[in-house]
Structure formats: structure tokens, C-alpha cells
């Protein structure tokens, strides 16, 4: 039984009110922030992500859980600044040029954020140069690209080329996803990996960075 079971259940259900109140209680009692973050929030979102991959949890429920987690995180924010907890890494994310699909990319961003990554979201219809400029500016660990149309998929290798030209391809891991995208395609265009859904993206990002 998890010490933070009430929070865990509340995040699962997307019950913001209970989750926030219980988080405050735990902090007031002097709970270890890192432990709370790992066990109450991140582990729960991992579960949510896994259930999403299986189809048990769906988009609205996952969004509510993610939103609940975000609200709890706000209470932990002061601890972040004091260096009590570590970020897992920086992710630069966007939907590629020519493609306006937003939802899948947003889900991935939320799940990664929920797992402890710091996210910079470039939005949709992102030109390869824009990925490059932002990557040069923030030096992310991972660049995540999304495409929902087979006709916009070719923007992915173009972006990878642009990263190569700018000389920063080997400084980042590139992950890709979206309905028409496959693991095979990721290999073909020399991306580092492919995630089949928002739930899978978390484990993918962690394993690429050598995190458990």
C-alpha cells in the first residue's frame, strides 16, 4: 500500500480538489518532496499512461489526470526552485510542417511533463528551421515530432537533415509519433525511436536518456 494512496486514487480519477488538498496535507506533514513526486504523482501517471496504451483509459480521462497532476505540481513548485527535486530532462516538441494536428502531440507533452520532463512546445506546422533555432537556444535532450498525415511525414526527415546541417543532430535524441508513423519509418529516416502512443512516449523518453 502506497503511503500516498489517497493522492494516487485522486490523480487516477482526475479529482483535482481531493488531490490538491491531500498534497498540501502531505507537504504540511513534512513528506519528502522527491519521494512524493515519484510515488504519488509520477508513478501514477506512468500507470495512467500504461492504461491509455491498453485502451482502458481514454483521452478525456487521461487529460483530467494530467491536469490533476499539474495542479499538485504547482504546490511543489517552490521545491523545484530550491533544487530539492531534479528534472528528468528537457524535451522540445512540435507537429511538423504542413500538419495542423494538435491533440496527440499535446497528450505526449502532458504525459512527459507528468513524468518529470521540462517541455517546450512549438505548436503545429513547425518549420524545420524553427526546430533547429529553438534547439540551439534551449539545448533539449530530446526533440519529439508528430505527424498525423502520411503526406506530412516527409517533414520529419527534412527536420532531421536541418539538425544535421546545423551540427546539433548528435546532441539530441529524436523521437517521432503519429497515426501513420511506424518504427520502421523511424529507422529509415534515422530518428532515434518511435512511440506508438502518449502512454508509450514516457518509457521511450526515459530509456533513451538512460533513466529507469
Amino acid at each position: 500500500m502506497n503511503d500516498f494512496q489517497v493522492v494516487v486514487d485522486a490523480v487516477h480519477k482526475g479529482d483535482i480538489k481531493t488531490a490538491v488538498a491531500e498534497t498540501q496535507k502531505a507537504l504540511d506533514k513534512g513528506a519528502d518532496v522527491q519521494e512524493f513526486l515519484d510515488k504519488a504523482l509520477i508513478a501514477t501517471m506512468d500507470d495512467v499512461g500504461e492504461n491509455f496504451s491498453k485502451g482502458i483509459t481514454f483521452v478525456p480521462q487521461m487529460l483530467r489526470s494530467a491536469k490533476t497532476m499539474q495542479e499538485c505540481m504547482k504546490l511543489l513548485a517552490s521545491s523545484f526552485q530550491e533544487g530539492a527535486v531534479k528534472s528528468k530532462g528537457k524535451v522540445l516538441i512540435g507537429t511538423v510542417k504542413g500538419d495542423l494536428h494538435d491533440i496527440g502531440k499535446n497528450l505526449v507533452a502532458m504525459m512527459l511533463e507528468g513524468a518529470g520532463f521540462i517541455i517546450t512546445d512549438l505548436g503545429v506546422d513547425v518549420h524545420p528551421d524553427k526546430f533547429v533555432h529553438k534547439a540551439q537556444e534551449i539545448e533539449p535532450d530530446i526533440i519529439a515530432m508528430s505527424a498525423l498525415l502520411s503526406t506530412t511525414m516527409p517533414s520529419m526527415p527534412l527536420t532531421i537533415e536541418a539538425l544535421e546541417k546545423a551540427g546539433i543532430r548528435d546532441k539530441v535524441k529524436v523521437i517521432i509519433g503519429g497515426a501513420p508513423v511506424t518504427g520502421k519509418y523511424a529507422k529509415e529516416i534515422k530518428a532515434d525511436s518511435y512511440g506508438s502512443d502518449a502512454g508509450a512516449s514516457v518509457n521511450l523518453a526515459k530509456s533513451l536518456l538512460g533513466l529507469s
Binding site: 483521452v59 478525456p60 495542423l100 494538435d102
Partner: peptide, 16 residues
Amino acid sequence: LSSRLDFNDYFIEFLD
């Protein structure tokens, strides 16, 4: 629709 931000909100609302 793909350039409408409110589309996503409605879309998620109507998934249930």
C-alpha cells in the same frame, strides 16, 4: 477546422 483552437476543446468534450 484544423486551424480552429476551439475544435480541440469540443473534440475532447465529445469523446465521452
